[in-house]
Amino acid sequence: MALASISEAQVWDWLEDVPDPEIPVISVVDLGVVRAVNVMDSNAVEVTVTPTYSGCPAMAVISMDIETALAKQGIKKISLKTQIAPAWTTDWLSEKGRARLESYGIAPPRAAGGPERCPRCKSEAVERVSQFGSTPCKAQWRCAECLEPFDYFKCI
């Protein structure tokens, strides 16, 4: 497919459709790991990504998924740049991302250091089970009302 010209906004749109491999309801853009998009010409795009946690194994998959998504749109030359500063923060999660996390059953991060409420029954009677969870970015909590355990997206 030959492209006349593409805009940065177009590339951001395409990246909106690349799901996080561990939490597929949010995109890599919602997660805040895509820091910059630079269109060199109609065939070459550079994407700058930042890791969530320094050892997060999902980063390799995220990079691969971004390359695959752009290649599907006909981009021939895709370069991925990793940048660690400024360090990723949960403040970069989009509002849409936060809402989707909650409806998926993961309590979104909060500066107070714990979830506001149970993502299932919305009760505020919640307690921590463990500071660590199924991925580096999550902790395990439980609801004292509906008794369901749930993931909390840690605030960093």
Binding site: S54, G55, P136
Partner: peptide, 9 residues
């Protein structure tokens, strides 16, 4: 998870 963070660093 702690080990993973340390190896990442």
């Amino acid at each position: 998870n702690t080990a993973l963070d340390l190896i990442g660093q």
